[in-house]
């Protein structure tokens, strides 16, 4: 591991100030579950590590009836998974966050860090996308908002400028008609990185699908959001006998529109195949959640 300076900041203002002044290669540390192994493997050239996990505002996890859920960028996965409100209202998010690493990793890892690491295979990103989540980006110049699907720009790359940081993520309030799910495929049942990950959400009104969103991970240079493949689903009754076939068709169509790589975790062909299988399974689970949600209400 190379030598680096370590700075712990206590407030967002302090952080903005520091990012604005420094010309050196800086990385922010929250849980460090990606950063530290990358440093150990010599994959990163870093001069300063700025520890943000002691910033109170970045550890905020709150729910507002109008704005929805706010996840401070440094909130640990475990805190999210243990939050009763999140568990009941956002099971599709929990699907993804509870899969990251293992229990020990989740104790330190943050969703904000998962986003900023910008891995194409990050589990939380497809789930956040299908929840229409927004990245709250701050700097000395002010605040800007970027939809999660526009945040990543390449493997390990994102829209953050040198003086900016991710302060938090806003996940809009969900209606009872809404259901979401995230499924990933890994060869084992734990301790793996997604070969393919699929997030899906739907809204169902009076037994008919009114909206649908789909996002896939590990199938391209960035997590992919598909906003246009759902015309065949819209307006469809959830008990329609053609639903199964249409979900197959959507999966098939998705599998032709992605650009997966072949690596040690899976081949391009296998990833295309799994995208098809998981697209259908995830949409079905989202539909099931939306229907069950309405029965409860």
């Amino acid at each position: 591991m190379q030598n680096f300076d370590y700075i712990r900041v206590k407030s967002k203002d302090e952080l903005s100030e520091l990012l604005d002044k420094q010309n050196k290669e800086i990385k922010l540390l929250s849980g460090g579950t990606d950063l530290i192994p990358q440093l150990r493997e010599g994959k990163k050239d870093i001069e300063i590590i700025v520890d943000v996990k002691n910033i109170n505002e970045m550890n905020e996890l709150s729910f507002d009836n109008t704005l929805g859920l706010y996840i401070g960028a440094a909130v640990s996965c475990l805190n999210i998974c243990q939050d009763v409100k999140v568990k009941t209202m956002y099971p599709g998010l929990i699907d993804a966050i509870s899969l990251i690493g293992g229990v020990q990793i989740q104790g330190r890892a943050s969703v904000g860090g998962n986003l900023c690491n910008s891995s194409p295979a990050a589990d939380s990103i497809p789930a956040l996308i299908v929840h229409k989540s927004i990245c709250i980006i701050e700097s000395k110049d002010g605040i800007r908002e970027v939809p999660v699907e526009q945040f990543c720009t390449g493997p390990g790359k994102n829209v953050l400028n040198k003086n900016e940081f991710l302060a938090g993520i806003r996940v809009p309030k969900v209606d009872p008609e809404f259901g979401a799910a995230y499924l990933r495929f890994i060869p084992r049942n734990e301790m793996d990185i997604a070969v393919v990950g699929v997030g899906a959400s739907v809204e169902i009104k009076e037994g008919h699908i009114t909206t649908a969103r789909l996002a896939l991970g590990a199938v391209d240079a960035t997590p992919r959001y598909f906003d246009d493949v759902f015309e065949p689903l819209l307006g469809m009754a959830i008990n329609d006998e053609n639903l199964d076939r249409i979900l197959d068709d959507i999966g098939q169509s998705i599998s032709t529109r992605i650009n997966p790589i072949t690596d040690m975790r899976g081949s391009a062909e296998q990833r295309k195949h799994l995208s098809k299988v998981l697209t259908k399974r995830t949409l079905l689970k989202a539909i099931e959640r939306a229907s069950n949600q309405q029965e409860v209400n």
Partner: peptide
């Protein structure tokens, strides 16, 4: 050797 970590040299875990 591309899978030189226990992440990618996949030995079974207790979940498997």
């Amino acid at each position: 050797l591309v899978n030189h970590t226990l992440l990618d040299y996949r030995m079974p875990t207790s979940y498997d």
